[in-house]
Amino acid sequence: MTSQYAYIRGTFVPLEDATINIRTHAFLYGTAVFEGIKAYWLPEENRMAAFRLKEHYQRLIQSCRIIGLQHPLDVDAMIDITKELLHRNHCNSATYLRPIIYKSDLRIGPILKVPHTHDDFCLFSVPMDGYLDTSNGIKVGVSSWRRLDDNAIPARAKVNGAYVNTALAKTDGYASGFDDVVVLTNEGHVAEGSAMNLFLVRDGKLITSSITDNILEGITRSSVIELAAKELGLESVSRTIDRTELYIADEAFFVGTATELAPITSFDHRPVGDGAIGEITKKLRDLYSKAVHGLLPDYHHWLTKV
């Protein structure tokens, strides 16, 4: 088997050597931010391409700004490292990339900014065709765990420590027989999935939670909105969503980098529409798949080719 590499502390190292000290601040306190990025094999070009790589690294830097980390590299440098890692790891199928900027100090105490503090960048890749089996749609429940608030740990930033919230919600959802969950805001409105943005279809329009309802400003979310408008002529409305709207939606689906587009066939054991994957959902899933695999020329600018 070909050796796999990761990037850490300014260099490429064998994956098994990409380790951190147990006293690392990010390990002790969750003081890190990350991105999930997907790269795909382009069948017509016989090479890999990463999807919306620049936008992901711009958002990573925004996450740093929100929690007070210093990004040691700029966007172009992180893009170059990503392309080199895909090359070194001989990636030739769908691949998930996890870049992290983390507080690398070896110290006790949660304060982020102290004299001589240091933040580092690391990156690794893993093969990933699908995060969930979504071929027949997924069953979703509404979680009793509420989404973290913008004034607590902001969902707008992909903060490592915040994903305990996701873990609690998703674990309880699995235990209750659901494939995933919807989480609500503290006010009781729909935020998003455990780690995915949500879309409903009602009366031929796409409805998705407002970015002020404690959601991640998703890159897949914005991609689907653009595809829906340009390719299908569908309007997307971002607004506050009530829980009971889930039960009367004509169609529903999650979107996210790892999940891509996951059709939802039931909420809280109530079928969505007729309980089958809806036609708009099918069309958007097909369009998104074609876009990420380089089969829609109008969206080649979304791809960073390796």
Rank of each mutant, 00 (worst) to 15 (best):
I153R: 04
G278K: 13
Q70S: 13
V255H: 05
G275I: 05
R59S: 02
H116P: 00
R202H: 14
K103R: 11
E260G: 00
I67W: 09
N186L: 12
F34I: 03
T208H: 08
D133T: 06
A291M: 15
H71I: 01
M78Y: 08
A258L: 04
D172M: 14
H87C: 03
A77M: 05
N214V: 00
G130E: 15
S209A: 15
E55A: 15
D298C: 04
Y299R: 05
E226H: 04
G233H: 11
V114N: 00
Q70R: 14
Q58F: 02
F267P: 08
D172T: 12
L227E: 11
S93G: 14
H293V: 02
R221V: 05
D213H: 03
S63M: 06
K83A: 04
S125Q: 12
G137W: 04
G233L: 06
A249T: 04
T208M: 10
T281D: 09
S143T: 11
N165R: 10
A229V: 01
R243E: 15
S209E: 09
N21V: 01
K38N: 06
Y40L: 09
I215T: 02
W302K: 07
D180T: 02
T244M: 14
Y102T: 01
Q4T: 11
I277K: 08
L295G: 11
K283C: 02
K170P: 09
D298F: 02
D76G: 07
E260I: 00
V190F: 05
C91K: 07
G36L: 12
S143V: 07
D150P: 05
R47T: 12
C122G: 13
W145M: 07
K290L: 06
M128E: 11
A162Q: 14
R52L: 07
L295M: 13
E251Q: 10
F12I: 09
L261S: 06
I248G: 06
T265P: 08
K170H: 12
L85G: 02
R243H: 03
R147G: 12
A228N: 10
S93A: 15
A49Y: 07
H301Q: 13
D80H: 07
L15P: 00
I264S: 13
F178A: 08
T2I: 11
I207R: 12
G193D: 13
T240Q: 14
E192F: 02
N197L: 14
E192D: 01
L69C: 05
D298V: 02
N21R: 01
D180Q: 09
G273W: 03
N160W: 14
A157Y: 08
V164G: 10
C122K: 03
I211R: 14
R107V: 00
